[in-house]
Structure formats: structure tokens, C-alpha cells
Design a protein around this nucleic acid. Structure first.
Lengths: 243, 243
DNA sequence: CGTTGCATTGAGTGTTGTCAAGCTCTGTGG
DNA sequence: CCACAGAGCTTGACAACACTCAATGCAACG
């Protein structure tokens, strides 16, 4: 079945052993293919009856705006991620999501997903697991912003992104392609763009990482991990828990 | 049925219309009553095959430790909260949970919850929703720490806690009882304990809030909301989405 | 009546933000 | 082909917010 190729399907199947019927139900969620250009806002904070999306190609990010114009980026999304689950579970979206690059995604309406859960109960458990993994990422992000210095934050962030991308085959110990701007980094890490620039320069001069021209190069992966006190535990997912 | 009184049951039923059978399955999760004294560690980061808990009385908090001894508090838990869901969904717990006051809780083992989902599929959706609401709280916490000044952070935090407590009848516009120390606040807000003290003093001197002797008093609720740019949207939960 | 946990305050330091300017690229229209 | 605009990046100077260190107060408790 073609949809076995979907990155989300692969991810879920890695956690919960899904039956043929489950997979078929999951495949039906992948109708409604859409593509959006860079900068398109998929979900707007406050919007009612929003859709969710399964991202198959490109990068997006979710964020919240503050009354004073500030922006906090909550998470970056890469292929295989389920976007905006909370926006369909809640009456009104509590965050916004915007495409960073041109993206390919399938749109999932609220009834689609609720019907799918009724039809294939294991799917609900699998999605709960995926949502929990996303939450773990946000939690680690919170730790990062709350308790680490600017330099540690940056180092940790780049390593984490690298680890997540490596899981879907889009990066390794040498580095990864990265379409983010320094403004994205600033708003994700709770820093000013100016300071992000200073920190990046320092990390580069120390021979740790180089972030330039849409590419992150880990110049000294092991030393960088040390600076960041980086540990991948919260990303782990070996073998299905539910058989 | 007695268990209709459980705060978690109330919370879930408010979101997803649950059948009698669903409620019965949910009630069966409430065997294994436990009580723990203040300071007891319910879940330890790194621990394998941990339990989850449904909190019925008292306060707890979840946190992560850093290699340098620092601590980031991720969330505080009050009656009706489901604790440690991620620790049973994952192979190993990615965070720790400790009792702040003496607490009453029921222990939930991994098979309990997975069997319950198989038996009563709607329960899985309901728990997914509860988990999403918790995630929304963490996200707002991240925004708070990432993009607000120390004073705004504190104001926002106290208002949020008040709003959550008000939902379970443990607080109102005048204030609430609060067993937290200034160290808890510091580790939750990403500040030093010393600075927390200064910020609290300033808020008190401005006539906004008073935090003293285990009690938070909102001296000027409306002005405080203004300082914090506080909006409860992310806590909303009017009426069942799934009927 | 010492000890322990928590709260408070002051002094000095430093990390990070703000403001301001200039740079490099890229794409676009004249 | 050149001028220009705009987005993103870079740097310096200065200010401020928040941290550390250190000392003290205060209550509860054994």
C-alpha cells in the first residue's frame, strides 16, 4: 500500500503495532493533499474549527504572539510531524502555524480524526503517543530556555534539531540543511536577534558549529554535546510498546 | 456511582460524552489508592516501567534536573490532574514528579490504561484531550519564560495558577492558598530565588499581589491582569466536543 | 536552644537587550 | 546593465535586567 510510505505512518507503526485495518484507516486520513508556499499561515491563533495537517515535505513552525508584538516559537516541524492537533481538539486554536519553506501536507478535518479513532481505537493510542513525544520536545525546549545560558541554549537546540532530522534521514553527525533565519532562532530561544548573532559567531570561532547559508555544520560534535549537556533520552522510541 | 465524584472523571466527562460503560472502565482505573507524604518522589527521571497517578488531593510538581544541579519545574499539578502519562507511554520516564504537600492519588499501571483504551475507545480520545490541555499549559509556560520580563512572568504565573485552581473550586478573584516556596517559583520561572523575592516585593509594593504565608492575595486583580497581559484562552473547555 | 528551611536585603558583576549603523545578497524594474 | 529595495546578517557602544555572593532575620522543630 502506497501510504505505508508516509513518514507519519512509519512513525506511528514504530510505536504501536497497527493492524491492516488500522493502516487503512490511517491511509484514509491522507486524502486532501495540499501544498503551500513559504510564509503561508496554516493555522491562526484564535481561529475556530481549524484543520490539522500531516506534514510530508518541508519545514513549518508553531508559535504564539504576545500583545507587545513579541513572538515565541514553540516548535519547528519536519516531515512526519502531525501539525495542529490541539487546534482541532480545542474549540479555538491556541497557537499559529506557518510554513517556513514550501511544504507538502495533507489536511485533516476534525471529524476525520475523530471518526478514525472510533473506527481504529489503536490509532488513538498511537496518536496519543505521538502527541506525548511532541510534548516531551516542548518540555525539553522549556528546560533549555529556562535554565541554560544563551550559548548552551543554542548548542542544545542545534543538536536537538540535528537528532530529530537524523531520525528521518535528513542529517547526521556532520550537520544538516537548515532553512531557519537568525530571527527564527531568536524567537525560539528567547533571545534577541543581535545576541543570536553574537552567540553563533562565538560558537563558530570556538570551532564547535558553523551556521551559514542554510546549513548547520557540526565542526566538533562531541565537544558541542559537552557544551550543551545534550542527552537524547527524551527522543527515544525503540520498538512498539503496544503489541 | 461513587467514582463520578473523581475530579478527573468530571474533567474528562466535561469534554467527551462518556457512556456508562466508559465511566465504569474509568472507575476501575481508580483502584489502588495511595497516599504519599510531602517530598515523596512519585516518578524519577530515567526510571523504567514507572506508574502514572491520578491526583485527587494535594499538590505535586514535575521537573527535570540538569547536570549542573539546576532544576526546571515544568508544571504544578492539582487535584484532577493525570500525572506521569508520558512516563508510562515511554520506555523510561523523561521527567520526575514530587509531592509538594501530602497527597492522595490512585496509581495507574501501564497495562491498566492500555487495556482501558482497548475496552473503551472514547476514553483514549478523552485522555488525548486532557494531555493536549496539559501541553497547552506547558506551551504557555514556555512563552512566559521565553518572552516575558521577570515581573510579567510572575504576574502571569500567579494568575494562571489562580485560574486553574478556580476551575476546581480552590480559588477565586481574591486569591488562593498556595503551598509553594520561593524556590519553587524560581525554578518554575527560570529566575534565581533572590530575584523572585525582589519581584514579589515589588509586586506587593505596587499593590498588585501579595504572596505570603502560603497564601496568594490578588490585591488588584484587573491591574495585575494588565501587567501580565493575561488571557485564559488556552484553558478553555466549554462543552463536550465529542458527543 | 541549636539546627534547619525559608525569606529578605545589599553590593557588585555580568550576561543579554536595545539602539544604531552598515554590510551583503538577491531580485526587480528602469 | 545598473539602480534600488528589501531581507537577512554583522558589529559596536551603552544600558539594564537579573545573577552571584554574602550576610541576616525569622519561625518551626527536635
Amino acid at each position: 500500500m502506497l501510504m505505508l510510505q508516509s513518514p507519519l505512518t512509519r512513525k506511528l507503526a514504530a510505536y504501536v503495532a497497527l493492524s491492516g485495518a488500522d493502516l487503512e484507516t490511517l491511509a484514509r486520513l491522507h486524502r486532501r493533499r495540499r501544498s503551500f508556499q513559504s510564509g503561508h499561515e496554516l493555522i491562526h491563533e484564535g481561529q475556530g474549527r481549524a484543520s490539522a495537517f500531516i506534514l510530508s515535505e518541508g519545514w513549518a513552525y508553531s508559535y504564539k504572539l504576545l500583545p507587545d508584538g513579541g513572538r515565541q516559537i514553540v516548535d519547528f516541524h519536519i516531515p512526519g510531524d502531525f501539525l495542529g492537533l490541539r487546534s482541532i481538539l480545542f474549540r479555538t486554536a491556541d497557537h499559529s502555524i506557518e510554513a517556513i519553506t514550501r511544504i507538502e501536507a495533507t489536511e485533516v478535518l476534525a471529524p476525520d480524526i475523530l471518526d478514525a479513532f472510533a473506527e481504529a481505537p489503536r490509532l488513538a493510542t498511537a496518536v496519543l503517543w505521538a502527541a506525548s513525544r511532541d510534548e516531551a520536545v516542548v518540555v525539553e525546549h522549556l528546560v533549555n530556555v529556562g535554565r541554560r545560558s544563551a550559548e548552551e541554549r543554542m548548542a542544545h537546540f542545534l543538536l536537538e534539531l540535528g537528532a530529530r532530522l537524523a531520525l528521518v534521514g535528513a542529517g547526521d553527525r556532520t550537520g544538516f540543511d537548515c532553512p531557519l533565519t537568525q530571527y527564527h532562532l531568536a524567537d525560539a530561544l528567547g533571545l534577541s536577534a543581535v545576541h543570536v548573532n553574537r552567540v553563533l559567531r562565538h560558537l563558530r570561532e570556538e570551532g564547535l558549529v558553523t551556521f551559514r547559508n542554510g546549513r548547520v555544520d557540526f565542526d566538533d560534535f562531541d565537544r558541542l554535546k559537552k557544551v550543551a549537556a545534550f542527552d537524547t533520552g527524551y527522543l527515544d522510541q525503540d520498538g512498539p510498546l503496544l503489541r
